[in-house]
Design a protein around this nucleic acid. Structure first.
Lengths: 118, 118
DNA sequence: TCGGGACATCGACACTTGTCGATGCCCCGA
DNA sequence: TCGGGGCATCGACAAGTGTCGATGTCCCGA
């Protein structure tokens, strides 16, 4: 619809059409990044990952923030829904664990990108 | 927060697994991830990075999406403000280039994290 | 059996964000 | 000098997001 009628032949630069990331790929990865793009959730993942076995109890996470328990629970749900965290209930307590595959996806995406020297 | 659009001073480059991330550190990195956490912006960065010299003209980027020129301009501004893209005007056209440091920050952050289970 | 503690969910609120059409600014070519 | 094209900005709108207090659900110990 809004295709530019090419004001002058051969405008400025390289084609770059049909390049690296497809639209579908971008739509698949963006939610993962969106889940991680929050200071509280970044710290949550960091706290869980820094814990001994890569997991942490919600009761401990609650005490690390100046936020309501409902808010922390919400953030943990967002991370879990995005596939960043695993959830396991043990008796009264709930433990969240980091899913390495999720972080590996992001690392791969930007790792290769950062190494392209131009 | 009227920050200079070129935060060259040591971005993040801190492991996600070592010690827990501080609140200030999380607040500093989250905007970078937030800028990248959008399908359109991910494709924009990908297109720019895939171009020959790691840069691209806005006129070409406009044609790669089914969005208004104003919307693309907005997304480019977000990426530029976050320090992901560099902006350079050449005559009538404007070229955006990827800042490798920005992507390297993200790669470092999640790269070490993905290697955890060892 | 009953009470209480640990999490999740709900409803509500202010704030942010993605998108658009319209308009303004700047640079070049005629 | 003037007209036009490339890009940014403005104002507006709907949709999404972070946060809270209140409430619900489940499980254990007394």
């Amino acid at each position: 619809m809004s295709r530019n009628p090419t004001p002058t032949s051969d405008p400025c630069c390289t084609p770059l059409t049909g390049a690296a990331m497809s639209a579908g790929e971008a739509e698949r990865i963006a939610p993962l990044l969106k889940a991680l793009a929050d200071p509280v959730r970044l710290r949550l993942v960091s706290l869980i990952a820094a814990g001994g076995a890569g997991e942490a109890c919600v009761c401990d996470l609650n005490e690390a923030f100046d936020l309501t328990q409902a808010t922390i629970s919400h953030h943990l749900k967002v991370l879990h829904t995005a596939g960043v965290l695993d959830r396991e209930k043990r008796g009264v307590w709930v433990y969240y664990a980091v899913r390495p595959e999720a972080l590996r996806s992001v690392a791969t995406l930007f790792g290769t990108a950062a190494l392209t020297p131009a």
